[in-house]
């Protein structure tokens, strides 16, 4: 067994590993697992500060978005806050342990013009933060982000907090990815919500089963998009999110199965569970995998690429690609010129 995997499993089971895996965990953004490492000076000196800052940021973000949540409710616009602190609370039972940089809203494309107006009325700007403040995106940049992905260009607003001067809101229009040819029934997805509270701010999140689907699809995209792989490589934190979510949330298997079938996403969820299980080897994960297993699901294993045209087989094993390679160098050598061009175009606009 891979040395890292053994150490991760021990840590996940409440034991201290014999190997020093701090640097690896830090490079993979696994703050929760790091917090389980005992007597680590690096942790106390560095990560604790980051955690405090993360708390400040999350508090500021939710305070600033409270009015937005109220407006969305008043206008009866369906929405759910996904990822970030909401995921952290569900998976790790602590909204502040998993670091995040923004608030992600999942909404229906048909409501987007109304939501955009709400955000602009509340003082948000579609732009990027520069040393001179918020610089609005050009029309071409806005068009690119909205038409080429299932997100629209992020909204930014200045706060009065010098520790966290800008709040970023990302608007997600789908739980699938821009390249997908499937049409998600977003009315169905956004019916499956429940109220939750962070820092005394109440808002809507997805119900646990839909939240797991959304989480897996998001992570599937990160594990398969040639652009995202090139930029970030594979991250252990993705598998941690899924493992601890399954472990800590009381999921109804039948509901999960029904939703996966309805949305036609079983194979993608299976893919994420499969690789998570390669790391954590867990009976619950295996039970979920058995439920969602299919030929289509098998067909995705050991491959990457978000659509048929760009899908190709990994020629290195999972642990090597997770821990041992520089992904951009690796992809430079195996991707076609067309795929590399696509990555360059994305780098220009995203």
């Amino acid at each position: 067994m891979n040395e890292y995997i053994k150490a991760i499993q021990m840590l996940a089971n409440g034991e201290q590993p014999g190997t020093d895996i701090y640097d690896m965990l830090y490079s993979h953004n696994c703050s929760y697992l790091i917090s389980k490492l005992s007597s680590n000076d690096k942790y106390t000196n560095k990560l604790k500060i980051e955690n405090i800052l993360n708390k400040v940021c999350i508090a500021e973000r939710y305070k600033l978005c409270a009015e937005l949540f109220n407006k969305l409710e008043e206008c009866h616009i369906p929405y759910a806050v996904i990822k970030g602190a909401v995921l952290s609370a569900a998976a790790y039972k602590d909204p502040f342990i998993r670091h995040s940089g923004d608030i992600d809203l999942l909404v229906n494309r048909k409501n987007i013009d109304q939501i955009k107006k709400l955000l602009l009325d509340l003082g948000f700007i579609q732009g990027r933060v520069t040393e001179n403040g918020i610089e609005p995106f050009s029309r071409r940049e806005l068009l690119f982000q909205t038409s080429m992905s299932h997100q629209i260009a992020p909204f930014v607003k200045e706060t009065n907090n010098k520790l966290y001067p800008y709040v970023n809101v990302d608007i997600n229009l789908d739980i699938l990815w821009g390249e997908s040819k499937q049409n998600t029934d977003m009315d169905f997805v956004l019916e499956k919500t429940q109220d939750t509270t962070i820092n005394d701010i109440t808002f809507k999140k997805l119900c646990p089963e839909m939240e797991l689907i959304s989480l897996c699809l998001h992570h599937y995209k990160d594990m398969n998009s040639i652009y995202l792989l090139y930029e970030r490589g594979l991250k252990l934190s993705h598998f941690c999110d899924i493992y601890f979510f399954v472990k800590n949330c009381n999921l109804n298997l039948e509901t999960l199965y029904t939703y996966c079938r309805k949305l036609n996403v079983s194979e993608y969820v299976y893919y994420c569970l499969y690789y998570t299980n390669l790391i954590f080897e867990n009976s619950e994960l295996k039970e979920y995998m058995a439920l969602l297993h299919s030929e289509n699901a098998d067909a995705l294993i050991d491959k990457f690429g978000l659509n048929e045209e760009e899908r190709q087989i990994w020629n290195i094993d999972f642990y090597t690609r997770l821990f041992d390679i520089n992904m951009s160098n690796y992809l430079d050598n195996i991707l076609s010129e067309e795929s590399l061009n696509k990555i360059r175009v994305n780098q220009m606009f995203m």
Binding site: N111, I112, D113, R139
Partner: peptide, 16 residues
Amino acid sequence: VALEEEFEIEILDSDL
């Protein structure tokens, strides 16, 4: 972009 410039319109995000 060409449509927007020629007809002085702004295509809504929901249409993009």
